[in-house]
Amino acid sequence: MLSHWSAWLPSLLSGLAMSAKLAGASLLVGLPLGLALALLVTAPPWPLRWLALVVVELGRALPALVLLQLAYYGLPAIHLTLTAFVAATAGLGWITAAYSSEIFRAGVASVAHGQHEASAALGLRALDTYRSIVIPQGVRVALPALLGLAIQIFQATALAFTIGLPELLSQAYDIGNETFRFLSVLILAGLLYAVVVLPAGALVRGIELRLGRHLRPGQR
C-alpha cells in the first residue's frame, strides 16, 4: 500500500494545491463581499437591504453543489461560459459571502454602543466611525468564526470534482479509475484533507482562546 501511496502522492499533492488555490480564491472573493453584505442588510435604503438579504439567504439555503452547477452548467444558458475554476470560485465565493456576512454582522453588532457615541462625540463621520472604530473591533470578535468558515470552504472545494476541476478528490478518483484501487487512493486523499483540516482547526481553537483571554479574569 505504501509503495502505491508514494507513487500517487505527486499528483494528489498537485490536486491539493489546486484545492488550496480554489479555497483561497473563494475567500478572497467572498469575505469582502460578506462584509459589504453585513453592512448592507442594516442599510437604510430598503431596496439595498432586501437585495442583500436575498443574496445572503439564497447563499445559505441552496446546497453548495447546486450553486457550483448553476455557475458551471447553468450560466452558459445566458451566454456566460465560465471555466471550471472561475465557476467554482463564483459558487464557493457566494457561499463564503453569505455565511461570513452573518458572522461579520454578529461581530459588528457586538461592538458596544458607547463606541458609536464616543465616535460621534469626537466628531467622526459615520463612514470614518465604521472604518476606523467599529469594523476593526467587530472583525476581531468575528475572527475565530471566520477562520472556522475558511476551513469549511476548504473542505467544500472537494465538490468542484463534479465540474471537472482537477482538485484533490478528482485526482484521487482518476487514479482510482486507472488502477482500480479506489479504497487506498481515497483513504490517502482523505488523510490529506485531514492533515490540513485538523491542525488548522487546532490553530483556530488556540486563537479563539487567546482572543477571549480578557473575558476570563484571573487566567493568563
Binding site: 465538490l159 482523505g190 483540516v197
Partner: peptide, 10 residues
C-alpha cells in the same frame, strides 16, 4: 475533518 463527499466515495 474529511469532506463528506470523500466519505461517500470511500
Amino acid at each position: 475533518a474529511v469532506p463528506p463527499i470523500v466519505w461517500l466515495f470511500i
